Simulated assay, not measured.
Amino acid sequence: MNKGIVIAGPTGVGKTSLSIKLAKKIDADIISSDSMQVYKYMDIGTAKITKNEMEGVKHYLIDEIEPTHKYSVGEYYNRVNEVLSNLNGKNVILAGGTGLYIRSITEGLSSLPESNLEIRKELLKYTLEELCEKLKKIDIEAYKAIDLKNRIRVERALEVCLITNEKYSKLRNKNIKNNNYTFIKIGLKRDREILYNRINKRVDIMFNEGLLNEAKFLYENYKKGIENIKAIGYKELFLYFEGKITLNEAKEIIKRETRRYAKRQFTWFNKEKDIIWFDLDKQAEEEIIENILEIFNV
């Protein structure tokens, strides 16, 4: 079994710097686990690592797709497992803050079938209440587990049952990992107020580095499908370009939404099993790296 390391944590905590230094220590390639850095032309707003910052370390899943493409965890899962299969056992680091992407590689992804248009059309004929009753009869475990007010979730559960003739509640837990790496999971954190201050300053730096021009390029060149660009820092500036908010309002919303996103990331990773946490306010980066190396080499 090959070995890898996950470097996870909220946006702005310091994952990039530490992962580069760690990669050079263990001769590892880095696979981005950031759902936005996979997009082309979204560099400043996603704090995308530059060629100089890479310091010669090979990176994957950066600048791979068009900004308006709806990228999914399934696509990420397939692409990363393709990369891992071609690395021939080389050490690898998954670095990023998109928890679902990381989990798909470390724990696997459920092998649920793709959507069936005919079944979906048929389900549209029923009210939400009727769909819930159907689900209750077919798969009581799913009925008890999912949000019955969310029609999309209920339809999907029923669709899977009807396609496979199996219970959605069982299939969703049958994860297929599809790679031969075992991962040590490292979480990085800071004091909440310190992190929020870092985020606020980073947004100011992004504007100084040309975020407005970068967002303008996307707005002017990707009008068709612009609604698919959901990244914080861009969708707010699109509202500014449309005259719906002022530039200062856009900047403050970006800071607020980024802080909220960091809070959601903390919540996600705190629920994940087997994460070993390090506090960058209490330990120097070099000391944390040495501790990780001790764990990795056991």
Rank of each mutant, 00 (worst) to 15 (best):
G4P: 00
A8V: 08
A8M: 09
P10Q: 00
L18K: 04
I20T: 05
K25L: 09
I26Y: 07
S32Q: 05
S32F: 06
Y39A: 10
M42E: 00
I44K: 06
I49P: 11
N52S: 15
G56R: 03
H59T: 07
L61E: 04
I65R: 02
E66C: 06
G74C: 07
N78Q: 09
R79V: 09
R79W: 06
V83Y: 02
S85I: 11
S85R: 15
N86G: 02
N88L: 12
N88E: 09
G89D: 00
G96Q: 09
G99N: 03
L100V: 13
T106P: 00
S110C: 13
S110F: 07
S111C: 13
L112M: 02
P113W: 11
P113K: 05
L117E: 12
E118N: 14
E118W: 11
I119H: 11
R120H: 07
E133A: 14
K134W: 15
I146E: 03
D147I: 12
C161T: 00
L162Y: 14
L162R: 10
K167I: 10
Y168F: 10
Y181K: 03
T182P: 05
E193N: 14
E193D: 08
E193F: 14
K201S: 13
V203L: 01
G210A: 10
E214V: 00
L218K: 05
E220G: 05
E227F: 13
A231T: 13
G233F: 10
L237E: 06
F238N: 00
G243H: 07
A250P: 06
E252Q: 08
R260W: 03
F266T: 03
F266R: 07
N270M: 12
I275M: 09
I276E: 04
W277G: 07
W277L: 12
E285K: 13
F296T: 10
V298W: 11
